[in-house]
Design a protein around this nucleic acid. Structure first.
Length: 300
DNA sequence: CGTATTTGACCTGCGC
DNA sequence: GCGCAGGTCAAATACG
């Protein structure tokens, strides 16, 4: 647990970053640096500020987790109108890590208004909670959904659900239009965490898995990718990526290879071509992950 | 038996 | 207003 955020990730990526993944002494830290480098480049591209508070927020939330297991308590501050895409459990601003090593990066607008029914529902019931007396269908009405910031990336992988150090509960699967592959919906199993992710395969290239994170984890991962059981890239994406979108969206669209079907309307796509050229290969876990699709050089 | 997954139904948002 | 597609719920089922 504690080792997952052992150091200030921001310091790590601002200080010593290394693109030499393969030759690194620690593939994990290399991965960290890799991501942070890329994120730094991306965020600076848009003149976004990085606020190194993520560790504190997570610890705060973890503390809550230890001291109080009531789901309602945590959910009460899950989303607010002014959260501007803040995380589910904390409003902390953090530097996100964009997993550029795996794919192009897509950034969703943090303030996409939708429906807040899910938040409302989760407060009252939760996925595993006892049913409320009020039918959910009734509670849907009159609610506004505040879409949390989204973060999507593509990974070339044979497995759909990439391990990222968190535990996820699948709560839905949906056929996607114009795609032969269904989209799976996952929610973080942490009772205080409202992070979700969607996983689907690219309709154009079935070997590419598109993972979309929504929200920000308020707790540590359950494990850390040292034992080789975790997809590093996904881990950092899941942990850090969404938080980037607390910053103002520049509202520009430069480049994307992620199908619009998964991102809804408003989105910002970071032009990965402006990023430092990544290593075409990326450490993978158990060989499940194939070649990570590097931004800008895919399909060459 | 507790937890996770599956899956059909339902709701919301959006485009026309 | 209508229809479609995305997203979620929750009961049923599977699994360890």
């Amino acid at each position: 647990m504690e080792d997952q955020e052992g150091g200030d990730p921001l310091n790590e990526f601002t200080n010593g970053s290394s693109w030499a993944l393969a030759g690194g002494t620690d593939p994990v830290s290399d991965t960290v640096n890799y991501f942070f480098d890329r994120e730094s480049a991306i965020l600076s591209e848009f003149d976004w500020n990085l606020q190194p508070n993520h560790t504190e927020e997570i610890e705060r939330c973890d503390e809550l987790d230890r001291t109080d297991t009531r789901p309602d308590l945590a959910r009460t501050f899950s989303v607010s109108e002014s959260s501007a895409g803040a995380a589910a459990c904390g409003s902390g601003s953090v530097a996100s890590s964009i997993p550029g090593g795996s794919a192009d990066v897509l950034i969703s607008n943090p303030l996409i208004p939708s429906s807040s029914r899910e938040d409302t529902l989760e407060k009252s019931t939760g996925s595993g909670g006892k049913p409320s007396e009020i039918p959910s269908k009734v509670r849907y009405k009159g609610q506004k959904r505040i879409r949390q910031p989204r973060f999507a990336f593509m990974t070339k992988s044979e497995v759909d659900h990439l391990e990222d150090g968190y535990r996820w509960r699948k709560y839905g699967q949906k056929a996607v239009k114009n795609s032969p592959f269904p989209r799976s919906y996952y929610r973080c199993t942490n009772s205080k965490c409202t992070v979700k992710k969607m996983v689907e395969r690219s309709s154009e290239d079935s070997t590419i898995v598109i993972t979309t994170y929504e929200g920000q984890h308020c707790h540590h991962r359950v494990g850390f990718p040292r034992g080789g059981f975790i997809n590093h890239e996904a881990a950092f994406a899941g942990q850090l990526a969404p938080s980037a979108f607390q910053f103002h969206s520049p509202g520009i669209q430069l480049h994307t290879q992620i199908p619009p079907s998964i991102t809804q309307s408003k989105q910002v796509v970071v032009d990965s071509r402006k990023l430092p050229e990544p290593s075409p290969q990326f450490p993978t876990d158990e060989g499940l992950l194939g070649d990570i699709v590097p931004p800008g050089i895919r399909n060459r």
